[in-house]
């Protein structure tokens, strides 16, 4: 597997939290970084993009052992959650400053994307500042700026969170176009809580809990590795020992198990189903939470 980013022992220490990550972001695919609040997703993303300094460890980008910092900044398109640009900026200011800050910024493309997103153009005479825009429109402006750059890796921190469902669908289309444009040379890493909406565009998933990676792999492989189990109340006790995690009710239980136990689970009367990424995420993260307790 070609790697866009190879992360080995990347550590960031805070007073009451330590991130220690070993993971791979495959080249040519969209990777979702999934985890509960406080799991370390933003810390990892910020550390990879130079926003945070790391305590130790390495991150090898584009399979180059040593990459010049300026080249790295130029090839990675980063967008954080929250207010990415100063709030007094307008689209015109964003366009001008992006052109100064990055060599591969295409102002025409930025204007096209802003118009598609319904924000107007950076050439309009009257423009609103970001302060007067909604959260969703601020994120759209930031995403338009990032997508208007010539990059090889997009690293986005919760890009879908403030967007409406239609905008999320459009974002998924933009992800696909971005990956296809350079025929497998481009990659995306994004963190998300909207797993259901982003599933269609997610090829690879990295699950994090308490600053560590607890599971990672191609989504299809993970869906083959795990199985969603449904049992009724009578069979639940027989199935429980084989489940990694479960929720129970009066009518039965639903949980996640390893596929290798499928035949045994079927024998005890469980109904098995291929999990969606959403269901997989809930199961994996719940297991991690239970392990912590």
């Amino acid at each position: 597997m070609n790697k866009a980013v190879d992360i080995v022992g990347l550590k960031k220490e805070y007073k009451d939290f330590t991130m220690d990550v070993t993971a791979t972001v495959p080249k040519g695919f969209a990777t979702a970084l999934i985890g509960a609040n406080g799991a370390g997703k933003t810390t990892l993303i910020d550390s990879l993009c130079g926003v945070n300094a790391v305590s130790s460890g390495t991150a090898v980008f584009f399979e180059k052992d040593s990459i010049d910092n300026s080249e790295r900044l130029e090839r990675i398109g980063y967008c954080s959650s929250g207010n990415f640009f100063p709030l007094n900026w307008k689209l015109k200011t964003i366009a001008e400053c992006m052109a100064i800050g990055f060599d591969g910024f295409d102002r025409e493309r930025f204007d096209t994307l802003c118009t598609e997103w319904g924000l107007g153009s950076s050439k309009d005479k009257k423009q609103k500042s970001l302060m007067k825009m909604s959260d969703g429109n601020r994120v759209r402006a930031a995403l338009a700026a990032v997508f208007a750059r010539e990059t090889d890796l997009l690293v986005l921190d919760e890009p879908a969170s403030p967007l409406d469902p239609l905008a999320r669908d459009r974002l998924c289309d933009m992800f696909r176009s971005y990956l296809l444009e350079k025929d497998g040379e481009r990659s995306i890493l994004f963190s998300t809580h909207n797993i259901a909406d982003m599933e269609s565009v997610t090829d690879y998933a990295i699950f994090m809990a308490d600053g560590k990676v607890i599971e990672q792999g191609f989504v299809e492989d993970l869906k083959n590795k795990y199985v969603l189990v449904h049992t009724d109340a009578g069979d639940s006790e027989k199935a429980k020992p084989l489940l990694l995690t479960y929720t129970s009710s009066d009518t039965g239980l639903e949980g996640l198990a390893l596929s290798e136990n499928s035949s045994v689970l079927e024998a005890v009367g469980a109904i098995l189903e291929r999990p969606t990424l959403q269901q997989l995420s809930v199961g994996v993260l719940r297991k991690a939470e239970n392990n912590e307790k």
């Binding site: 910020d46 993009c49 130079g50 926003v51 945070n52 910092n69 300026s70 900044l73 130029e74 990675i76 980063y78 954080s80 929250g82 207010n83 990415f84 640009f85 100063p86 709030l87 900026w89 100064i100 800050g101 990055f102 060599d103 970001l130």
Partner: peptide
């Protein structure tokens, strides 16, 4: 600061802290 609007953006532009 990183937590202020623009704080993260400025850390990723050309030149970084030098800028």
């Amino acid at each position: 600061d990183r937590s202020n609007p623009g704080g993260k953006f400025f850390r990723t532009v050309k030149g970084g802290f030098s800028t």
